[in-house]
Design a protein around this nucleic acid. Structure first.
Length: 686
DNA sequence: ATCGTCGGATTATAAATAAT
DNA sequence: TTATTTATAATCCGACGATG
């Protein structure tokens, strides 16, 4: 998926070479080039399409065809938009403020791509050619004097440390030996940041007032990673806005809101993707880049009133701070920022369906997505950390088919549906409330059933999303089942989701789901997938342990699945999952038995070396295994359940701790998104 | 004279809408 | 469905200022 070949030969060659018609070539047929190179485009000069092209060669600048052409043509739902604008005129004429948002302070929340400069934040669109676009929308418009003639190179310099980056410009004047990244803490001063890249930006005047912001080119590499891998699980703003290189020309052009958001986003992206993907070189020699970004965000927040006015950007900033802290296992802070994010959303009335009607329809769609992202996250995190929830399902789901990417949205909405089954009772019961009215047999059966009926339209989504939804579903089943156990609703002879061996059935499904899955698609989910798989495996292990000695085929099968799951965990994302060891320690006595029974496929050698030796140790296999009656099993299960140990390997205190302090869901996507997404940004040239 | 910049005319084309 | 309209993006002419 490297950048498309610079040669656009087919087209131009056919026009020039055949020369079947003299009138075409001779007379005035200027025939604009299909694609001008990046520099010519910026310079507004005629490009000949060569590589390097004439003008670039003459000017001794690096010629490249990296910037992808944007889509032409109108965007969005025109009539709806016009209708809305008209309605707004009406509203303002009659003096009724249709929105509580103050327009001036309302930051631009990624739009659907239209009217980058003439759309008022409230969605009114008045095209007034006489007024020049204000150039002030948070750096989206280039400042004339520094309109990023070289911003392409700046971006590249920030990405340079990718393995096969862009070839260095050989013929650029050198200004100094220092590397660009050493300027992490300084104001982005033209000369000093030149580094090995040339730099001729002539931006004298504006805002030199030493704001010690990170240079704007620090962001794109991480923003690209975000869109390449994390965007599908949080499609809440417009990638076209944030992947636009012209946004990153001058970091002082960012509003504080925007700057905070970008910092938080980068911080979260770095931790969440972790080692699953090669990341750009650190911005700072000693400090971790994610910490740097997070601190920047917090520092900026001290410089302005970030609480009011509220904007969707505020919501997002806090959300990404949550993700950052959550991934760092700092759960108090994580929870705090998630709550803050939710509070912002409430202040924006995003939990009130009525308010969406007053918004621009496009804006409303983005906000619905954001609301549901918070919803999903809150539910998932609340369950994992045993917290209360505040958000509810009263807001309509975002539109799928009208969206810019229905497939993507379909996946997102399905996940939202799935979590809708996690109702108040679920959360409360899971938190340990023993109110008998909460977790009744009926409720449990209902919930289990709902989980199966929610999100059924899974045929039109990517494998990555499918994996996420399918595994999450089984994971929630496991949680619900555990609640049933702790409330005494599970019987050896129960039916369906009430059976004692239900987790084995769930594990079978998970094994089926994951075994045929594309390795890459599975790995791209990051830590979240590991977590769910280990939860499931942990629960399964508990069941097997408590029923050890039961030699019925179901339980033998269960061990089979357990083995498969553990093997999966032993090589997630190219390394052993951090959740494997805690699981292994609770596995005492189980795998050994099972390994001795030859019913399993032998682990691959790579995997085998990863398994703790005691598991495969022969003498261990000989250990006689105790037998338990069903009643005993249930008793054991009950004592294990809901103490934070059922399904969670908590044998030793450190393991317990490890388990309690685990990461939030950190699903990560990849694949399909990546290739349609700015290859010029994701990778260097071919 | 030469070079580089940039306003904006011109052209290309995707999306929305109307016509069939 | 196809045709037409319309909104948007891309190319690059040529006026203009800077430089020598």
């Amino acid at each position: 998926m490297a950048a498309e070949p610079p040669q656009q030969s087919e087209e131009s060659a056919s026009t020039s070479a055949p020369a079947n018609d003299s009138t075409e070539s001779a007379s005035s047929a200027p025939k604009p080039l299909r694609r001008a190179c990046d520099c010519c485009r910026k310079r507004k000069v005629k490009c000949d399409g060569a590589d390097p092209c004439g003008p670039c060669k003459k000017a001794s600048i690096r010629c490249a065809y990296l910037q992808p052409p944007k889509k032409k043509g109108p965007k969005g739902l025109r009539s709806a938009r016009v209708l809305h604008a008209l309605r707004r005129i009406d509203d303002t004429a009659t003096g009724s403020p249709a929105s509580s948002l103050s327009p001036d302070q309302q930051a631009r929340f990624g739009d659907w791509g239209w009217n980058p400069s003439n759309t008022s934040p409230t969605g009114m669109v008045y095209h007034d050619p006489s007024t020049h676009p204000a150039n002030t929308y948070y750096g989206q418009q280039a400042m004339p004097s520094e309109n990023g003639y070289f911003h392409q190179q700046q971006i590249h310099s920030a990405m340079r440390h990718h393995p096969q980056g862009i070839p260095q410009a050989p013929n650029q004047p050198q200004f100094g030996p220092e590397a660009p990244h050493q300027h992490w803490a300084h104001h982005h001063h033209p000369e000093s940041s030149a580094g090995s890249d040339h730099h001729q930006v002539t931006s004298p005047s504006n805002s030199d007032a030493a704001q010690h912001r990170l240079p704007a080119e620090s962001f794109p590499p991480y923003v690209q990673l975000f869109f390449a891998h994390m965007f599908p699980i949080m499609p809440v703003f417009d990638r076209r806005v944030y992947l636009d290189p012209s946004l990153y020309i001058n970091s002082n052009a960012f509003s504080s809101e925007m700057y905070c958001l970008l910092c938080a986003l980068c911080a979260a992206t770095i931790v969440q993707l972790d080692a699953s993907i090669p990341q750009p070189a650190p911005l700072h020699p000693t400090k971790a880049t994610d910490d740097l970004f997070a601190e920047e965000c917090l520092r900026e927040r001290r410089c302005f009133d970030y609480i009011e006015p509220v904007t969707p950007l505020s919501v997002l900033s806090s959300f990404f701070l949550f993700a950052y802290y959550g991934n760092h296992e700092k759960h108090a802070k994580a929870w705090h920022y998630l709550q803050e994010s939710i509070t912002f959303a409430e202040n924006l009335n995003m939990d009130n369906e009525e308010f969406y009607g007053k918004l621009d329809p496009v804006e409303a769609q983005w906000r619905r997505r954001l609301y549901w992202l918070l919803f999903i996250t809150e539910r998932a995190y609340a369950v994992q950390r045993r917290k209360h929830t505040r958000l509810h399902v009263s807001v309509q789901l975002p539109a799928v088919f009208e969206s810019e990417d229905p497939q993507l949205l379909n996946g997102f909405v399905n996940l939202a549906n799935l979590f809708s089954a996690v109702d108040e009772s679920f959360v409360s019961a899971w938190r340990g409330s023993r109110r008998p009215s909460l977790c009744t047999e009926n409720w449990l059966m209902n919930t289990q059933q709902q989980l199966d009926t929610a999100a059924l339209a899974l045929d039109n989504i990517t494998e990555t999303q499918h994996l996420d939804i399918a595994v999450t579903r089984e994971w929630l089943h496991v949680l619900a089942w555990q609640m049933g156990v702790s409330n005494g609703l599970i019987w050896g002879k129960g039916e369906g989701g009430m059976r004692l061996d239900y987790p084995i059935e769930l594990a079978r499904k998970v094994v089926e789901i994951t075994s045929g899955a594309d390795e890459q698609a599975l790995n791209s989910h990051g830590i979240g997938m590991e977590q769910k798989l280990s939860d499931i495996a942990g629960c399964l292990a508990d069941v097997l342990k408590c029923t050890d000695g039961d030699t019925s085929s179901t339980f033998l099968e269960g061990k089979d699945y357990l083995h498969t799951l553990l093997r999966r965990l032993s090589s997630m994302r190219g390394k052993e999952s951090r959740y494997l060891q805690p699981l292994m320690s609770k596995m005492e006595g189980l795998m050994g038995y099972e390994l001795s029974t030859q019913t399993l496929p032998a682990p691959t050698e790579a995997v085998a070396t990863r398994f703790p030796s005691h598991v495969q140790h022969p003498e261990f296999l000989a250990t006689p295994l105790p037998r338990y009656s069903i009643a005993d099993s249930m008793g054991m299960l009950r004592t294990l359940s809901m103490n934070g140990t059922l399904g969670m390997p908590g044998i030793t205190t450190e393991c317990q701790d490890e388990w309690q302090q685990r990461r939030p869901s950190g699903r990560v996507y990849d694949e399909a998104e990546t290739n349609e997404m700015e290859p010029w940004l994701v990778n260097g040239t071919a």
